[in-house]
């Protein structure tokens, strides 16, 4: 009994977890330890759980996740920078029976796409927005983002973000939660197993609400950018807990159309 071999354990009937088939076999283009990969995976796991591969249209942004369509094994459209909610609006209006989501970074959603985001939210488009907030422009090499924290360093604020001259970080999630068209708003993370499980539940909830035509659902995932922050992945996750979470606190912000707290 004590001598169970690895081969005996590694049997299909004993499988606990493996990468979903809704992710392609292509190696992810993200930096080691980047939360994008985890976020991609749980979105795809939820779609798999919902058996909705043939019913889902995803919209990729411009930014690090511009190539999301290389990894997500569903029909996808790649939008111009910031415009994903406009594409999603049309897709959902023209095919209301489909599950439609955008996957956007903070530069895409909270800077160049502010108008498209706010207005899609305000119209209560029946779509889901997955918002990855790592407080920096990763793909272009670590420039200041609309979400960069006060005094946080980036390549275009090398001495730290001076809020007097560079403005304050924009809390888009709290902002869109104010809009009547928005049904569900939550802020989560994917840096620990517990947080991944919570975030996956949140995404499931968002998609379920979309299926029930409840209005716009918005899931922010506060994530790391170890390359941009110039830290190891483990350091970046710790730094995120200590610096990002106090400013961007995790938890539900709006549930069933009601603001929490």
């Amino acid at each position: 009994m004590s001598e169970i071999t690895k081969e005996q354990i590694r049997q299909p009937e004993n499988l606990v977890y493996t990468k979903t088939k809704l992710l392609t076999d292509k190696a992810l283009s993200y930096c080691p330890g980047c939360g994008h990969g985890t976020a991609h995976r749980i979105v795809m796991e939820v779609i798999e759980e919902l058996n909705a591969q043939s019913e889902t249209i995803g919209i990729a942004p411009v930014g690090c996740s511009v190539l999301a369509y290389e990894f997500m094994n569903i029909d996808m459209q790649q939008a111009a920078h910031g415009r994903a909610p406009a594409l999603a609006t049309a897709v959902k209006r023209l095919m209301p029976e489909k599950l439609v989501f955008t996957y956007q970074g903070d530069g895409d959603l909270a800077a160049i796409g502010t108008a498209e985001t706010i207005h899609a939210c305000n119209r209560g488009e029946n779509i889901t927005i997955i918002f990855i907030n790592n407080g920096i422009y990763g793909m272009t090499g670590g420039q200041m983002a609309p979400t960069t924290l006060p005094n946080m360093k980036a390549s275009t604020c090398p001495y730290g973000r001076d809020v007097v001259t560079m403005g304050n970080p924009l809390k888009m999630t709290e902002l869109v939660a104010q809009l009547p068209g928005v049904r569900y708003v939550t802020r989560q993370s994917v840096h620990t197993p517990g947080n991944v499980r919570k975030t996956k539940k949140a995404i499931r909830k968002a998609f379920d609400m979309q299926k029930e035509n409840k209005g716009l659902t918005f899931v922010e995932i506060v994530s790391n950018c170890n390359s941009g922050w110039k830290m190891t992945p483990i350091q970046s996750n710790k730094w995120m807990e200590e610096n990002m979470f106090p400013f961007y606190p995790l938890g539900d912000i709006k549930v069933d159309g009601q603001l929490v707290k």
Binding site: V16, T18, T20, L28, G35, P193, V196
Partner: peptide
């Protein structure tokens, strides 16, 4: 113990987990 925590947080989805009850 096959808890799958490692696989769940792996950003690249490279870990497959098995578990057997003794």
């Amino acid at each position: 113990i096959g808890c799958a925590n490692c696989a769940i947080v792996c950003p690249d989805g490279v870990i497959t987990v098995y578990k057997i009850k003794l």
